[in-house]
Write a protein that binds this DNA or RNA. Structure first.
Length: 860
RNA sequence: GCCAUCAUGGCGGAAUUGGUAGACGCGCUGGACUCAAAAUCCAGUUCCCUUUAAAGGAGUGUCGGUUCGAGUCCGACUGAUGGUACCA
């Protein structure tokens, strides 16, 4: 007989929903905890067994904290803009809003069927105009801000305008300089162009990853995801919206140090940001005045720089190319232009063309040839390198292929077969002003840097791999970017009071046929006329990427219905920051960096009070199929949560997913394992409830046996400690031990067994509520119960088992009263016959006694 | 290649500060109940030798080190997983 989970689970789910059992409100008298799950993309496929893993973990913690009297915020919502819904619309012509609503209903049903204690009054949906109004609002804040390097902080653009009007660009880092007078004399359009160089959201004409089949561009970090699915991505220069995420590189690194995040995630972000220290060095052209600046992390090898390589896109390529080489260079540039960065990387075989030009190596004063090659990327450093083939593998390969000179300047394992890239002693590195010879790499670096700086030829520099965030997508199903482009070339943001800028209702969702989004076809929507001036304009047809809505949803949960602000400051002050954030590791460098970025901008502008959004982060490990391989339809090893709940109940699913192993580890599904925890719940049920469904008569008011009572206190403590540390598997195993023992007891103490239901309830809330009711409580557990205390004095037994080792090997065990002194323990140890057998005839060298634990005798 | 993490029975895993390795669950073996089966309950289950038991030996990827004592600490290696990839 199985316990009636299919009756009691819907019963309590209805009860919690109807009574708003988990609704949270601000209460300054109580400590708060904000526990957040990564909200799902509601796909047509429905919930995957991976979702309940993270969701159950946070649910257990939340239910536990509520029992402890903590005010818990635990919301759920939908990340519902995105490509899959739009692609489905292209195929079926069903509006993505309709499919999105259907998918959300299905996801909500599935999540509610798991008994997760969300506050459903705070549900958010990124496609809801009431939500994306504020996504657009934040976009306008980014557009209206710039990053001030001097104070490492974002500021409103109006402050920049004030500074330009007062002092021009003299105190600013800027490529194009102007005085206050020149600024004030500029036209509106000219002013806008200069300001655009500073804005955190700006338009740029850059080579992007264009996918014809999807009809949109993809961010660099998104390319792999789609090429894996068989799509082709090409490189194409296009006008795109960008976000200046690179401004925050240093702050990401510095603030990351204080976060309680998985090391691997912090490490990934660190690699992604890719900070490196080196020097920028100027090389003088042999003919002409121009200088070419390179970036290197090994300035100490300058004497070994035997040629220079420019990226094919480098702006000085034309200037350095001789007439004789011009045709070859142009052909190479065209070939490089169509290759995606991915293709460039795949083919490690070096290609390149000599430009005919030369620069002077500032250290040796010798002319060296300038080449172009696609192994040098325009997007990193200065787009130009000094090639040191003796000490760089790539330069070495290139030099070998094109027969360029190789000069060793670091003494190491030099050979003709490979470059020596390690540290060593500098050689062949001296001119009339500086000598590095005899110095180790670190000292040589210092010496050459000092010389470069003092002679004005170069300076120390820090570079990052991180690039600005490609923000626009040529899609329909995303937030419209609230900017209008006027016919005179100026642009203006949509007035805040006019937000949300609604998506027009389209009838067809095919790509526009050009590189514009389908929005370009909605002429009534796209074309606007300024009522004041009569000037014609066009709305931005690009939309925001899916990441935009998820950048700030954790803030909206705090105040989901607020129509006047994205979130009230008072409520934010109470709930922020997020105390625990749980979700998949696949978001390590995308969502988790984008939302840190937006949060920091909002922080700089004074809209949020913390500089980081998520204090503590954990990833749930992937759940593999029963065959230990990744779950996939094609392998036929996908487990559907609906089926598991149908057969075993939600409590069993929850319990099993937590019992499988550590939260963060990857682990295979096991149907037998679900049956195992299901048996455990059945055993509990039979212990409390008779065949007739009434409370068992085994429960009495008599005190429990001492040993069993000790186990009870140990269990409470272990479950409490383990939940706090997110070690749910060991908490469950302890409860199993307790129940196994309970079944052997002739009678059971009623209040102890009632308390056990409390500690079980975070894990298996439905069965716990039902037992709580059967135990005669007038109110539901979720409303009236609190966590139960344990007695620390009851944790340890009066008798302890002492292990006796001889030379580190266990030879005997005996039981002794707790805290027996060392001398007595030694005496007892020697009294053991097997200890005698192993020590007789030997000299005792040493005796180690650890109280209440062991005696180790060292004998020779 | 580089960076990070990890490696324990037939399987998932436990061992919180170095102190009884294998908790708990699965599987398997035997037994009880039953006409029989399912369900349930009881006992056993790291490997080897003896085998009734006691006792003994080996054992946490490999090799070495520190220590009275190492799954745990240190060094080298091997393998797996994830990330990244011409970033100068």
């Amino acid at each position: 007989m199985q316990y009636p989970f299919s009756d009691i689970e819907p019963k309590w789910q209805r009860y919690w929903l109807e009574h708003g059992s988990f609704a949270a409100s601000e209460d300054p008298s109580k400590p708060k905890m904000y526990v957040l799950d990564m909200f799902p993309y509601p796909s047509g496929a429905g919930l995957h067994v991976g979702h309940p893993e993270g969701y159950t973990a946070t649910d257990i913690l939340c239910r536990f904290q509520r029992l402890k009297g903590v005010n818990v915020l635990h919301p759920m919502g939908w990340d519902a803009f995105g490509l899959p819904a739009e692609r489905y619309a292209m195929q079926t012509n069903i509006h993505p809003q309709i499919t999105t609503e259907q998918n959300i209903s299905n996801f909500r049903r599935q999540i509610q069927m798991l008994g997760l204690s969300y506050d459903w009054t705070r549900e958010v949906n990124t496609t809801d105009p009431g939500y994306y109004k504020w996504t657009q609002w934040i976009f306008l804040k980014m557009y209206g801000s710039w990053y001030d390097d001097r104070i490492q902080k974002a500021r409103p653009v109006c402050e920049l305008e004030a500074e330009l009007a007062a002092t021009g660009t003299q105190h600013l880092t800027c490529e194009e300089h102007c005085t206050a007078g020149q600024w004030n004399a500029k036209t509106t359009l000219e002013k806008q162009k200069l300001l655009d160089r500073f804005r955190l959201a700006f338009i740029s004409e850059i080579p992007v990853n264009w996918c014809e089949a999807l009809g949109t561009v993809l961010a660099n970090e998104e390319v792999a995801e789609w090429t894996d699915k068989g799509y082709t991505v090409e490189r194409k220069p296009m006008r795109q919206w960008m976000m200046r995420i690179t401004a925050y590189s240093d702050r990401f690194l510095k603030d990351g140090e204080s976060l309680d995040w998985p090391v691997s995630t912090l490490e990934q972000q660190k690699n992604w940001i890719g900070r490196s220290e080196g020097a920028e060095i100027d090389f003088q052209m042999q003919n002409g005045d121009a200088q070419i600046r390179v970036y290197t992390t090994r300035p100490d090898t300058l004497f070994g720089a035997t040629y220079m390589v420019l990226s094919p896109e480098h702006p000085l390529v034309d200037a350095v190319t001789t007439d004789a080489q011009r045709t070859a260079v142009s052909i190479y540039q065209m070939q490089a232009a169509v290759k995606s960065e991915l293709e460039r990387g795949v083919d490690k075989d070096k290609t390149g063309v000599f430009t005919g030009g030369f620069v002077i190596n500032p250290a040796t004063q010798k002319p060296i040839p300038i080449w172009i090659a696609d192994y040098v990327l325009m997007g990193y450093g200065t787009g130009a390198i000094m090639a040191v083939p003796a000490h760089d593998e790539r330069d070495f390969d290139f030099a070998k292929k094109f027969d360029l000179p190789i000069v060793y300047v670091v003494d190491g394992a030099s050979s003709d077969a490979a470059a020596f890239t390690g540290d060593g002693v500098a050689v062949n590195s001296a001119n009339g002003e500086v000598s590095l010879n005899g110095l180790n790499t670190a000292d040589a670096m210092k010496a050459i840097s000092a010389w470069l700086e003092q002679s004005g030829r170069g300076a120390k520099a820090v570079k990052f791999k991180l690039r600005d965030w490609l923000f626009s997508r040529q899609r329909y199903w995303g937030e419209p970017i609230p900017i209008i482009q006027w016919e005179d070339g100026t642009k203006s943001p949509v007035d805040e009071r006019e937000l949300p800028l609604l998506l027009p209702d389209l009838k067809k969702f095919q790509p526009s046929g050009t590189t514009e989004s389908p929005l370009a076809l909605a002429e009534d929507w796209v074309n606007v006329v300024d009522p004041a001036t009569g000037m014609k304009g066009r709305r931005e047809t690009n939309t925001m990427p899916q990441w935009a809505g998820s950048c700030w949803y954790y803030l909206r949960y705090i105040d989901p219905a607020n129509d006047a602000e994205f979130c009230s400051k008072e409520k934010m002050a109470y709930w922020m920051p997020v105390d625990l954030y749980v979700g998949g590791a696949e978001h390590a460098v995308l969502h988790l960096m984008y939302s840190r970025f937006w949060h920091k901008v909002l922080f700089d502008l004074g809209f949020v009070s913390t500089n980081e959004p998520f204090i503590k982060l954990r990833h749930q490990g992937m759940i593999l199929g029963e065959d230990s391989r990744k779950m996939s339809k094609s392998r036929g090893n996908v487990i559907n949560p609906d089926d598991v709940v149908e057969e075993f109940g939600a409590d069993s699913l929850r319990l099993f997913e937590m019992f499988m192993g550590p939260l963060e580890e990857m682990k295979p599904w096991s149907t037998k394992g679900v049956e195992g925890v299901h048996r455990f719940l059945n055993r509990i049920w039979r212990l409390y409830v008779t065949e007739e469904g009434t409370l068992t008569s085994v429960f009495t008011d008599a005190p429990a046996a001492a040993e069993f009572e000790r186990l009870y206190h140990q269990t409470v403590k272990k479950v409490e400690d383990d939940i706090a540390a997110l070690r749910f598997n060991t908490a469950i195993s302890q409860m199993m031990i307790f129940i196994n023992e309970a079944m052997k007891q002739p009678s059971l103490n009623r209040s102890m067994m009632k308390n056990f239901v409390v500690i079980l309830s975070p894990f298996a809330p439905h069965i716990a509520e039902e037992l709580w009711e059967k135990l005669g409580s007038a109110t539901a557990m979720s409303e009236s119960a609190s966590w139960v205390p344990y007695d620390p004095s009851m944790l340890v037994s009066d008798e302890v088992m002492i292990v006796v080792q001889v030379n580190g090997k266990i030879r005997a065990k005996f039981s002794a009263p707790k805290d027996t002194d060392d001398a007595e323990l030694k005496k007892c140890a020697y009294a053991e016959p097997n200890v005698k057998a192993h020590t007789d005839g030997k000299t005792i060298v040493k005796e180690i006694v650890i109280r209440n634990k062991l005696v180790n005798i060292v004998a020779q």
